[in-house]
């Protein structure tokens, strides 16, 4: 393999990587709230347009308003956890009541909405038919 070929390959790989990472970071396609820990759903999945929500809520720059990181019971101000599923920290062991995870989600969304007096708060507002 010649030197040039190698460079071309490296550039292509780099581009692919950048593209992959970029597409990973760009939130364009987040439209629902999902968590792999919910094995069967009692209510329909919550529709959630990430960017529009953040724009309306004016928290585009502050990911950790939602994607928080807690250490020893205290929120770490300059860290965030976008890459982590909620259930990774709010773990649900086998046999656990799934409601404890439901509760976490509800308080995260509804709790904030109640505080800010904005956004949906009643069951069917988020879980449509």
């Amino acid at each position: 393999m010649g030197k040039r070929t190698l460079i071309i390959y490296m550039v292509i790989t780099l581009l692919v990587c950048i593209f992959a990472v970029m597409s990973g970071y760009s939130q364009e396609d987040v439209t629902t709230v999902e968590d792999s820990a919910f094995e069967e759903k009692m209510r329909p999945t919550v529709q959630f347009l990430h960017d529009e929500h953040n724009e309306a809520a004016e928290i585009e720059e502050e990911c950790n308003v939602c994607h928080h990181v807690y250490e020893e019971g205290k929120k770490v101000e300059d860290e965030s956890s976008e890459e982590t599923e909620c259930s990774e920290c709010h773990t649900l062991n086998k046999g656990d009541n799934p409601l404890s995870l439901v509760k976490v989600y509800h308080l995260q969304c509804k709790g904030c909405h109640q505080k800010k007096k904005a956004g949906p708060i009643m069951c069917s507002e988020c879980h449509p038919r």
Binding site: M42, R43, N97, L99, S100, V102, K103, H106, K110, C123
Partner: peptide, 21 residues
Amino acid sequence: LSAHIILWKESWDISWWYISD
């Protein structure tokens, strides 16, 4: 009712057996 129990869970962190919707 599960919807009621979720409210109990949210407010008091208590829950019990529930029926399907």
